[in-house]
Design a protein around this nucleic acid. Structure first.
Lengths: 212, 212
DNA sequence: GCCTGTGAAGCTATTCACAGCT
DNA sequence: AGCTGTGAATAGCTTCACAGGC
């Protein structure tokens, strides 16, 4: 497996979703410029991204939708699937659960954690909620490899440390404070405050130019 | 105003938050390596970012915390402040409202919109909820310049079009579909599904390396 | 003619390394 | 000695432009 650039990984995930919609519409073949249009990218960008899958397209006919999806699955999914733990079942945590309820079976949130005991042992959106005290045990038992941090900034680092100690290899972080983790663990930050201030800045200063 | 790179704008927002915590702890001066530590960046990165503020540091003493914050305010904030509209008051929308309730007064969500009439006219987290039909009127009246799209993918583009028509100059988009907007409008995507699949990919494939 | 795949060029972002200040 | 500010080097990403295929 050759090294895939992070931005490309993200866009492959996007392409797959768009392709899935196309397939539902009965579309068999697609051109790079069609995908580019839907993805708000350029055709060159799309072709460059798809290069990591090996040659997939046919001159003048474009890409076979079915085959493309399969090829992206091959790259992004792991055959046994991966399970995800969500820590922090507040407003945001519940929104995330609702978002993912019954999406990709290969990538499911199978355990939630909260330190509020009234939430523990409940089942929200088909996901069982546990007490954070049981975090390590549940993660080991379910073979969870990915964690979502949706707790206040003050406790985010402590939660991340627990997740890492429990063997998690990737973390999506919603807390507005960068996490310190060993280099073997991959972190993606979703800092809502930061992003909103960025939007506000460009809303104020933009004369031309846009979209990321 | 010289052009500031997007990544730098984001990090300035982060630095400001970290500096604010330091100030609360009574810290007067800070070195680039201390800020870098808290921001999970390198000292060189921090100094490079702070260059857009002009020379601020003192050799051997570092940066005056108070002055730095003021300089960042100067760049990021607009004196009259900016108001934000949130469209879609579902799980995610409410989480965002809770997140921002009473944060920066210079950047506040002052109006929410939903097409569910039972939600309209209510006040959630201090934010008045309107019917989407009144979107243009309310945005004009309150002088709103930034929109947050927190609706399902199917209606995201329609909502974005309405926001743009109403005069909004920046959009934070949570829907998992890229928005088509004119180049005068700045969009930042917060695609939770995409990010999570990215994390899952690197959780599986990472032997070394990490953090963004 | 119109498409894909891709080297090469162009751009943006990060890191290095060091001169200058205190 | 230890810091900032910054040219210069490097790395990463996107766009151009065209050879080759149907």
């Amino acid at each position: 497996m050759t090294r895939i650039p992070p931005k490309t990984v993200g866009r492959l995930s996007l392409y797959r979703r768009l392709l899935d919609l196309m397939r539902q519409d009965g579309l068999r073949f697609v051109y790079s410029h069609q995908l580019a249009h839907d993805a708000a990218a350029t055709p060159a960008q799309v072709r460059r991204d798809l290069m990591v899958l090996g040659p997939m397209g046919t001159s003048n006919k474009g890409y076979d939708v079915e085959e493309l999806i399969a090829a992206i699955d091959e790259v992004l999914d792991s055959p046994e699937g991966q399970r995800i733990a969500l820590v922090g079942v507040g407003n945001l945590g519940r929104a995330i659960l609702a978002f993912f309820a019954g999406r990709r079976p290969r990538l499911a949130i199978t355990a939630g954690f909260d330190n509020d005991p009234t939430k523990a042992a409940r089942v929200i959106m088909g996901c069982r909620i546990h007490n954070v005290a049981d975090l390590a045990a549940v993660i080991a038992q379910e073979g969870i490899t990915v964690g979502i941090v949706a707790v206040p900034a003050a406790s985010a680092q402590a939660v991340a440390d627990k997740l890492v100690a429990a063997g998690v290899r990737g973390i999506m972080n919603f807390a507005p404070s960068p996490l310190k983790v060993p280099p073997t663990v991959h972190v993606e930050d979703m800092d809502i405050t930061m992003t909103l201030e960025k939007v506000a800045y460009y809303a104020k200063h933009n004369k031309e130019k846009a979209v990321k």
